[in-house]
Design a protein around this nucleic acid. Structure first.
Lengths: 187, 187
DNA sequence: AACAAAGTGAACAGATCGGTAAACTTTGTT
DNA sequence: AACAAAGTTTACCGATCTGTTCACTTTGTT
């Protein structure tokens, strides 16, 4: 990504929105934190909503790239990569400043299913589902789509549980459950 | 709950916050939607935060009562009640106006783990965990706490997935996975 | 050197935010 | 009948919200 002012804005806005929330982060705050003039912001993005959509696009790209790469690095076979997803999650959860999933939070603040931000968040989850389903298919597992959906329920559950913070090792619990599901699933 | 103005306010505020979000719902909006004067509101609650905390207390009471009762109605044995939790979830998800879990959304808008609203949301999840753990214990299952945490990961995952709306029957997927986990768990 | 694109600062809208003040009315208790 | 608690209306406060306007400066290209 070329280091244009526009990209710099999106990058900095991502961090601010992630840490403080969308509605709670005003455009004036972004001016302060990015050092970019408000005039310039509104030249790149007609509305705050447009900026948020750009932020979510960047986040989708960053997150999926990171997650896919990490799964490949941690395991060779498709089957093991499915399990390695939860090791990757654990790494994510233990990062300082972890504050849950940006898309879940976006859908929490823009709740209407017809809202562009909500729809784009759902798209992100759909793309993850497609990837995991393909992995399950490559692994030769029966009913790969069903298995993928089950594993992803564990993933989403771990993400919000790790953020709520009432439990330790949500990622490990999810991994254990995933292994069980895979074992019974494959026979 | 006696139908005092205060309780009426909390009840109406619950609906407004649930449908529109916490930050996105101003006190003036509540004045319009409840018909209760702002002066009166601030006589009962010193700040908006206090009102939100009261709303979350009511929600916790309502939700846990409903869920526990529904689990008991749908199944007799503790083991079957664990599974019935996901049937109850399905009923919830299919209600008109379903917009996810109020506590997950609260923790999405008040992200700091030290924030009272965030802490109270975590408390809700903790109480649910205790209940499910007790059920698993009564069912005579080994490692009841571990199993409970796994089942609750499926629950949380189903809740956010049903709200994101990129998948059909999140509750059914979670139920299927829960049955698998229980089967392998009990041997 | 000249020119357009991109960026700047600062002031300004109009609406809404959470919260307060003062004077008045309703309601329930004794 | 008297009194206090609870509720009301109305106006207001300063801060902040998203978004705009205008006059000006920097920067890259040719």
């Amino acid at each position: 990504m070329r280091p244009t002012k526009r990209n710099e804005l999106v990058q900095k806005a991502l961090e601010a929105f992630y840490q403080n929330g969308f509605n709670a982060t005003g455009m004036d705050t972004l001016v302060k934190e990015t050092g970019i003039s408000k005039t310039s912001m509104y030249k790149h993005f007609r509305t705050k909503e447009d900026l948020i959509l750009a932020v979510l696009r960047l986040r989708d790209e960053n997150f999926r790239n990171w997650m896919y790469r990490r799964m490949e690095e941690l395991a060779k076979s498709p089957r093991d990569q499915l399990i390695a997803m939860f090791d990757a999650l654990e790494e994510w959860f233990s990062e300082p400043g972890y504050k849950g999933c940006m898309f879940i939070k976006a859908s929490s603040e823009f709740q209407d299913a017809s809202h562009p931000i909500h729809k784009q968040s759902a798209d992100h989850k759909r793309m993850l589902e497609r990837y995991v389903t393909e992995l399950a298919t490559k692994a030769g597992l029966p009913e790969p789509d069903k298995l993928a959906r089950q594993l992803l329920l564990l993933k989403e559950g771990a993400i919000v549980t790790a953020h709520l913070g009432h439990t330790e090792n949500a990622a490990q619990d999810a991994k254990t459950a995933a292994i069980t599901l895979l074992r019974l699933h494959a026979g």
